[in-house]
Structure formats: structure tokens, C-alpha cells
């Protein structure tokens, strides 16, 4: 066969073998090597139990959250090319994105709906982990990482909420940060640090923007890595225990 001899020649050439350090994954050894020698695949174990793959056990909620986070990074970077975080320019650039940027409205829609969906999925993921008892030893620490990830997700959504700088954004953030300000002693200073002043204005906008596009996504990426790593270190999904 001409085709198969061609593929064989390619897959045995120097450049190919420098990229992929395993053969065609049709046998146990190469299937193992495929998973362990690829930076993305190596987050997975080489073998998984059939129990942990059952859809009715996990509903894939953690994976779905991670996928939505990926969609948010992708669409968020696209929006960053046009959006300007200043009180004078923010709203006009939103209009620009919606009316003159090719697929701008669509990209913004994807970003907004993925954000709401991610908050919802992360909450459901937490409920799933609780109801299957997957927070119990040895997974206590990973549960806490998960709670922190939930708070970071809420923070990422909340800081993004202000950026359109329309009435909806402005008053939602005013109401939301007022709640934080009700704490005795620590409340008002905490609110002032978050907003960079006593009211929602330019300082608040640039702080929310920086948190939204740099600090929180980096923290989430870091903690998701820790979260996935700990899943493996703690023996995979709790479904394996039964």
C-alpha cells in the first residue's frame, strides 16, 4: 500500500519522532506512552476505572466547567483587542464591539453566556462532589481547593460584570459592593480597597479590569492545575472507592 508506507515513513522520520515519543497507540505500551508523554494528556491517568467514567456518576460537571473556562479565555482575549477600560471609552467600545467589529456581538454573547454557565456548572459540580461524599479523606484538601475555586469563579464573574459600564453593570456592582460594606469594622475599608474610592468610578473600573483579565484567570489556572493534580494523587474519582 502506497499510503500506509507513506504514513510509516512519516511516523518513523526524525522530525516526527522528535515530536511524538511513542508509536501508534494500538497496544498497551504506546497507549500508556501517549498519555504520559503529552503535556495535556498527562493530566489524566494512564488507566481509569469504568466506574469513574459512568455519566450518571459525575455528569462531567468538572470537565464542563474547565471547557467553559477555556471558551471564556478565548473569547475574552478577542474582546480585549477592542475594549478600553476607561470611564469615557468603555461604553463606546462596547457599542463598537456590538455594531462594527466583525462577529463582535457574537463573541460578546459567547463570553457572557459562558460566564453565567460556568458559575452555574461550578456550583452544580460542588453539589455533585458533596452528594457523592467525595470530600472525605483523603480528598479534604482538594475539596477546600474547590471551595476557593468557586469563590474565585464568582469573583471573576463579578469583576467582569462592571466592564460594559452600562446602567445594569454600574448598579449591580454598586449593590454588590454595598453588601460587602456592611461588615462591621473591616467592611468599609474592604469596599474602599476594592473600588479604589468610596464610589464606583474610574478607579473601580481599572481595578475590576485588572482582576478580571489577569489576577483571577491566573489564580484560577494555577488552582485548577493543583485541583486536577490532587484528583490523581488522591486516587482518582471517589467512584473508584466503591
Amino acid at each position: 500500500m502506497a499510503l500506509s508506507s507513506l504514513t510509516t515513513r512519516i511516523s518513523q522520520s526524525g522530525p516526527w519522532r522528535s515530536f511524538f515519543r511513542h508509536g501508534w497507540p494500538d497496544n498497551p505500551l504506546d497507549r500508556s506512552l501517549t498519555m504520559t508523554s503529552n503535556i495535556f494528556f498527562h493530566l489524566h491517568p494512564v488507566k481509569v476505572s469504568r466506574r469513574s467514567l459512568r455519566w450518571s456518576y459525575s455528569f462531567g460537571l468538572g470537565v464542563i466547567s474547565a471547557i467553559l473556562f477555556g471558551v471564556l479565555i478565548w473569547t475574552g482575549v478577542l474582546l480585549m483587542f477592542y475594549y478600553v477600560p476607561s470611564v469615557e471609552r468603555a461604553y463606546p467600545t462596547m457599542k463598537e464591539i456590538q455594531f462594527s467589529v466583525p462577529l463582535g456581538q457574537f463573541t460578546r454573547n459567547m463570553h457572557r453566556w459562558s460566564a453565567h454557565a460556568m458559575v452555574l456548572m461550578v456550583i452544580l459540580h460542588m453539589a455533585r462532589v458533596f452528594y457523592t461524599g467525595a470530600y472525605k479523606p483523603p480528598r479534604e484538601f482538594n475539596w477546600i481547593v474547590g471551595v476557593v475555586l468557586l469563590l474565585l469563579t464568582l469573583g471573576a464573574s463579578f469583576t467582569g460584570y462592571l466592564l460594559p459600564w452600562d446602567q445594569l453593570a454600574y448598579w449591580a456592582i454598586t449593590v454588590g459592593t454595598n453588601i460587602a460594606g456592611y461588615a462591621p469594622v473591616a467592611g468599609p475599608p474592604a469596599r474602599e480597597i476594592l473600588l479604589g474610592g468610596s464610589e464606583v468610578g474610574q478607579n473601580a473600573l481599572i481595578r475590576f479590569y485588572t482582576l478580571h483579565i489577569a489576577v483571577l484567570p491566573l489564580l484560577i489556572t494555577l488552582l485548577v492545575s493543583l485541583h486536577l493534580w490532587r484528583v490523581r494523587k488522591d486516587g482518582g474519582l471517589a467512584a473508584n472507592e466503591t
Partner: peptide, 10 residues
């Protein structure tokens, strides 16, 4: 469509 209301007005 994602909502966009009038420009923020304190």
C-alpha cells in the same frame, strides 16, 4: 443577545 443598557449614570 447579551444585554447592554444605557451608559452608566451615577
Amino acid at each position: 443577545q447579551a444585554p447592554l443598557e444605557e451608559i452608566a449614570n451615577p
